[in-house]
């Protein structure tokens, strides 16, 4: 009989660092999946991350790779610049829904439309987290936020944007998938999708985006376990999981 470690803290996770995220925040899970992918693909020294603006602005404190900051929403443009000059490196952005789907909608659409060979990890938790729970472009109809205290009203605020479905209408992007971290069974699939999105870039295939449905217990006003239940019961019906586009 011998004991083996079957699950370890990722090597590319910054040693001896505790994240600033609230308890139960899905960002930490998604960060870990990115780290695990980087470790398993052996690309820690060759990966350049682009940090966006929002709760994950300080992702560079948690993943031990080269990092560039981007202004709010501009991460795909910064990544385009990096990848243009260093096509031999693996470049990825990590963006929330306020960053990518609101202020940065122009940059993500055009990076996708160019078929830019980058990887995008897009966290959709249906709210602005860092600024304190304001309505996001992804906030669900009827969902309360600090700037729609009575709930999102489509007559005033329009409808929540399904980014993956929208980008999948473009001919250039190769891989677009929506995953979730609400339960281990979803998280295991999310990991596979994120790893595949990096592998696509290594293989020179082109633009890959993984939308990760995640939680924001603090701004949703829920306990962590309850927030993941809400994600499954309320978010996932509007934002169905699946692969919307693939290279193959």
């Amino acid at each position: 009989m011998s004991e083996v470690k079957i699950y370890a803290r990722p090597v590319s996770w910054m040693p001896d660092v505790s994240s600033h995220y609230c308890p139960g925040c899905g960002h930490g899970i998604a960060h870990r999946l990115v780290c695990e992918s980087i470790d398993e693909l052996g690309i820690q020294n060759d990966t350049i991350g682009v940090a966006s603006v929002g709760c994950s602005a300080m992702i560079y404190d948690y993943i031990d790779i080269d990092y560039c900051e981007a202004p709010h929403g501009r991460a795909p443009a910064v990544a385009t610049g990096l990848k243009t000059v260093r096509p031999d490196k693996i470049v990825f952005t990590y963006q929330g829904d306020g960053d990518l789907a609101s202020i940065g909608m122009g940059e993500i659409v055009h990076a996708a439309n160019r078929g830019q060979n980058i990887t995008v990890v897009f966290i959709n938790n249906a709210i602005y987290g860092m600024t304190g729970g304001q309505m996001a472009p992804t906030t669900l109809l009827g969902q309360k936020a600090t700037t729609c205290p009575l709930g999102r009203d489509e007559k005033v605020n329009g409808y929540p944007i399904r980014v993956s479905e929208m980008l999948a209408t473009l001919p250039a992007p190769g891989y677009i998938a929506r995953v979730s971290v609400a339960q281990p069974k979803y998280t295991i699939k999310a990991k596979a999708a994120i790893k595949k999105a990096f592998q696509n870039q290594i293989d020179g295939k082109g633009f890959s985006l993984v939308e990760v449905l995640s939680s924001c217990p603090t701004n949703w006003g829920m306990r962590p376990v309850e927030s993941f239940d809400w994600l499954i019961s309320t978010m996932m019906p509007y934002y169905p999981l699946g692969t919307f586009k693939d290279f193959d």
Partner: peptide, 16 residues
């Protein structure tokens, strides 16, 4: 680029 907003940020990434 799709805009000057994007082009300057591409310069930021490229220059980095």
């Amino acid at each position: 680029a799709e805009s000057e907003v994007a082009s300057i940020n591409m310069v930021m990434g490229g220059g980095a």
